[in-house]
Simulated scan of single mutants.
Amino acid sequence: MNESINIIKYSGDVVPFKSEKLINSLRRAKATDVVIEEIVEHIKDTIYDGITTKKIYQMAFNMLKRKSRVSASKYKLKKAIMELGPSGFPFEKLIGKIMGHEGFDTKVGVIVQGNCVKHEIDVIAQKDDKHYMIECKYHSDQGRFCNVKIPLYINSRFLDVEKQWEYQKGHNTKFHQGGVYTNTRFTTDALQYGKCVGLLMTSWDYPKGNGIKDRIDQSGLHPLTALTTLTKKEKTMLLDTGIVLCKEVHNNPILLNQVGIEKSRHKRILQDSEELCRTK
């Protein structure tokens, strides 16, 4: 098969199939070279003109899962984050955990008084003289991007909160900044506006090398929804207990009993959780 096959992305755009993208995503999941070659050759022999990226992903994931559960969990990171729904609160907690790992003192779901009105802030993060107001925009559909209305709205809220912060003791020397985190991507206008007004803009893969996917890989803070050893119902029950990370499952194995998971399955679940916590 030559690489003149056109595929359909989640956005509906039609683009040529590039095996390099598949290879890179499998490498990021720590699949071995032998497994990567096997999967890529199978995909190249199987795909057809007009196939969706969703179908290609599912084919690759199913093959990878048979070879390595942990690599499959890493490969499905984007989907795993989308499985944190339907509410956006687990995603807010995930962002709070990531920033906490990076040395910030974080609070999630906080009501603060602005200069004009009260606001519910998804994440407030502080470290040294830095004080951030973060809003999280969670999507359960890869085709949905954050358009310019999102940073416009968030910046107006930040300015109201910042004005009130400046009245507080010690805040006149602090660096204040508003920010937007999304598990999908920003439109070009959204990024342009956000950078222009000084918002901290973070998406699945932006800024390059420091997006959400990169920071999860670097920290080992994988969402529990990445585990292939849990059913969808079990993941939902664990999320309902207030935890979001594989690390929390590993550190609190009693949670598996509390949601009714058979003892015979605990070892595999905890083994995968531990491996996903590793950063090397």
Results as ranks from 00 to 15, higher is better:
Gln142Pro: 13
His176Cys: 06
Ile95Asp: 00
Leu159Pro: 03
Asp128Pro: 02
Gly179Phe: 03
Pro223Cys: 02
Leu238Gln: 02
Gln58Cys: 06
Ile98Asn: 08
Asp128Ala: 08
Lys130Thr: 13
Asn257Tyr: 09
Thr106Cys: 11
Glu37Leu: 14
Thr228Asn: 12
Gly85Val: 03
Gly242Arg: 01
Glu41Lys: 15
Lys67Thr: 04
Ile216Gly: 00
Gly178Ser: 01
Glu274Phe: 14
Thr241Glu: 00
Glu234Lys: 02
Thr231Phe: 07
Leu84Asp: 01
Lys21Met: 13
Thr202Met: 13
Trp165Leu: 09
Lys137Phe: 08
Thr52Phe: 03
Pro151Cys: 01
Leu77Trp: 04
Asp214Pro: 03
Gly12Val: 01
Asp217Lys: 08
Asn115Gly: 10
Asp160Phe: 02
Ile39Leu: 06
Leu224Pro: 03
Ser219Glu: 03
Leu245Met: 05
His176Trp: 07
Lys149Val: 12
Val15Thr: 07
Gly88Pro: 05
Ile154His: 13
Ile81Gln: 06
Met82Leu: 08
Thr182Asp: 05
Leu152Ile: 12
Val14Cys: 08
Gly198Cys: 04
Glu248Asn: 03
Asp217Glu: 11
Glu262His: 09
Ile81Val: 11
Arg157Asn: 13
Val15Asp: 05
Glu120Ala: 06
Leu159His: 05
Thr236Val: 13
Ser19Met: 11
Lys74Met: 07
Tyr193Arg: 00
Lys18Arg: 15
His171Ala: 04
Arg144Asn: 09
Ser87Lys: 08
Val180Glu: 04
Met99Asn: 05
Lys208Met: 11
Gly143Phe: 08
Gly96Ala: 11
Glu262Ile: 07
Thr225Ser: 02
His171Leu: 08
Ser264Gly: 07
Met99Trp: 14
Lys163Val: 00
Ser273His: 04
Ile39Ser: 03
Glu275Lys: 10
Cys116Ile: 14
Lys18Pro: 07
Val15Ala: 02
Asp189Cys: 03
Glu102Arg: 12
Asp240Glu: 14
Glu3Leu: 13
His119Val: 02
Gly12Asp: 04
Ile269Trp: 00
Gly96Arg: 06
Gly179Gln: 02
Gln177Val: 07
Leu256Asp: 00
Phe186Ala: 04
Glu3Gln: 12
Thr188His: 15
Leu84Cys: 04
Gly143Glu: 09
Gln177Ala: 07
Lys21Gly: 15
Lys213Leu: 13
Ile36Pro: 12
His119Asn: 04
Gln142Trp: 12
Glu41Ala: 14
Asp272Gly: 06
Ala72Val: 03
Val244Arg: 00
Gln271Gly: 10
Ala80Pro: 01
Met133Tyr: 15
Glu41Tyr: 11
Leu276Gln: 03
Thr202Cys: 15
Met133Asp: 11
His222Ile: 02
Arg265Lys: 13
Glu102Thr: 05
Lys137Pro: 03
Ile121Pro: 01
Lys30Trp: 09
Tyr48Asn: 09
Leu221Met: 05
Val40Trp: 02
Thr279Cys: 05
Trp204Thr: 05
Ala72Ile: 04
Lys163Phe: 06
Lys18Met: 15
Ser25Lys: 13
Gln58Thr: 09
Glu37Lys: 15
Lys78Met: 12
Met63Asp: 10
Thr52Ala: 06
Asn24Gly: 13
Glu102Met: 11
Asp205Thr: 10
Lys263Tyr: 10
Asp214Gln: 09
Ile7Trp: 00
Leu159Met: 12
Pro90Lys: 00
Ile134Pro: 06
Met1Asp: 10
Leu245Thr: 04
Leu224Asn: 00
Cys136Ser: 02
Ser68Asp: 09
Thr188Ser: 15
Ile134Val: 10
Pro223Gln: 01
Ile121Ala: 10
Lys21Asn: 15
Asn251Phe: 05
